[in-house]
């Protein structure tokens, strides 16, 4: 019994000693797992880098959205003005101002058909 207790104390002491001396790493064959540990670190670094890149891209997306909004508004404004100018009475007014002889048609158009 005494021998067993002594043995138990010795094993705890051995473990602590092996931890402090670094033997435990060798016993656990951590040197073999080193590539995997390095790989994990690399993955972690890639993850951080990708998150950062995503954030940058999202920031660009938001910026481009504002640019698109700007052009959409510009297009809407121009469409409104263009359609307004196409109103028959407005076209007539512009033609009158330009002293044009062009007026609204009095008969249907004639289509010239070619072969």
């Amino acid at each position: 019994m005494e021998q067993e207790t002594t043995k138990g104390r010795a094993s705890v002491k051995t473990v602590i000693k092996s931890i402090l001396s670094g033997d435990i790493l060798l016993l656990m064959r951590v040197d073999r797992a080193l590539p995997y540990i390095l790989f994990l670190f690399a993955l972690g670094w890639v993850n951080i880098f990708l998150n950062y890149s995503i954030e940058q891209t999202m920031a660009k997306v938001e910026k481009n959205k504002k640019v698109m909004e700007y052009y959409r508004n510009d297009y809407a404004n121009k469409t409104y003005e263009f359609v307004k100018a196409g109103k028959i009475s407005n076209v007539k007014e512009m033609l009158d101002k330009a002293n044009s002889e062009v007026t609204t048609p009095e008969k249907p158009a004639v289509i010239i058909k070619t072969n």
């Binding site: 609204t104 048609p105 009095e106 008969k107 249907p108 158009a109 004639v110 289509i111 010239i112 058909k113």
Partner: peptide
């Protein structure tokens, strides 16, 4: 005068 339905060819 306006509608294309009565255009002549």
């Amino acid at each position: 005068a306006y509608d294309t339905a009565w255009q002549s060819e």
